[in-house]
Simulated assay, not measured.
Amino acid sequence: MKEDFLENGAEVVSLFCRLYINTKKELPIRSSHMGLLIFTVKSQTPVTPIEAAKFFKVKKPMITAMVTSLEKNGYLEKQPSPTDGRSYRLLPTPKSITLVEETYNEYFRTMDTLYHGMGEKDYQQMIALLARANDILEQGRD
C-alpha cells in the first residue's frame, strides 16, 4: 500500500516537473541564466556571485560559469568590490534590463496559470508545502 502511494507520488511529481520544465519560454538564454538575470536586475543592491549562489542554493562555480556566459553575451558586467579586491559585484547591462522587462511575465506564466487555476488559498498551500519539501530535501543533502 505504501509503495503504491509512493509510486503514485513519484509519478505526479515527475509529470509536474516535466510540464514545468518543458513550458515553452521564448528566451534567448537558458532559463537558469534568466533566473540569475532576474535576481540581479530586481535586487535593490549589487549582487555578488556568493550571494547569488546562496540565493539559488548552488555552488559558486555554477554561478561563475553563468556569469562568464552572460558577460560574454553582454548581459552582465563585473565591477570590482570596493572593499574586497578578490571579489566583484554583478551589474546588469541595459540589454539584460530590457530582456527582463520584456520577458518577466512570460517567465512566470506557469505560476500565474496555477495561481488562477487553483485559486489563491490552494496556490499558497501548494507553495508552502513545496517550500517545506525543499527544506526537508536540502537537510538530507547536508
Results as ranks from 00 to 15, higher is better:
His116Ser: 08
Leu70Gln: 00
Leu99Asp: 00
Pro82Gly: 10
Lys54Gly: 01
Ser43Arg: 04
Glu51Tyr: 12
Tyr123Pro: 01
Ala52Met: 02
Thr113Phe: 07
Arg132Gly: 05
Ile50Asn: 07
Ile136Met: 14
Ile38Val: 15
Met34Ala: 09
Leu130His: 06
Lys60Glu: 14
Lys42Ile: 11
Pro28Val: 05
Thr98Cys: 00
Lys121Gly: 00
Gln125Asp: 09
His116Leu: 08
Asp142Ala: 14
Ile21Asp: 05
Asn134Tyr: 14
Leu137Trp: 10
Glu7Gln: 10
Thr64Met: 12
Leu70Cys: 03
Leu15Thr: 08
Glu77Leu: 13
Thr68Gly: 11
Pro46Asn: 06
Lys78Pro: 01
Ser87His: 10
Tyr107Lys: 02
Glu3Ser: 08
Gln139Gly: 10
Tyr104Glu: 08
Asp84Gln: 04
Glu120Met: 08
Gly119Glu: 03
Met126Gln: 02
Arg30Asn: 10
Lys95Ala: 06
Arg89Val: 04
Gln139Arg: 13
Met1Ala: 13
Ala52His: 02
Tyr88Gly: 00
Gln124Met: 01
Thr64Cys: 13
Gln44Ala: 15
Asn134Met: 15
Ile127Pro: 01
Arg89Phe: 15
Lys54Asn: 07
Thr110Gln: 12
Val47Arg: 06
Gln124Cys: 01
Asn22Asp: 13
Leu37Asp: 06
Thr83Phe: 14
Leu99Asn: 04
Phe39Glu: 12
Leu36Ser: 01
Cys17His: 09
Val100Thr: 05
